[in-house]
Amino acid sequence: MIINHPLLGPRDAAEFVYLGDAGLIDRPDWQADDAAQAFHDYMYLRDNPAGLHRELWFHEQGDRSWLVVTRNTVTHEITNVELARDVAIAQGRGQ
């Protein structure tokens, strides 16, 4: 697989390590009343779709940036690559 890095251009997926579903950006609020339940779901449950999947890849052998890659889990086709930083800021995180 080739991941089209937003800053560096096309890079071999072997340069990256995989973390999992991009939902891992949305860490729950630890002070909320339902924090235990929310962290259980956040930590352990996955949608695991067959089809488009937004997922976190880390460019360990490169610029060490985190990416959000949209990839089809049935065909391995990559349709979109964003910097995880941009995604997180757009979601109102990282302040």
Partner: peptide
């Protein structure tokens, strides 16, 4: 090492 339903690897 990545989610897949493709029955083929890389």
């Amino acid at each position: 090492g990545y989610n897949s339903y493709a029955q083929r690897g890389n």
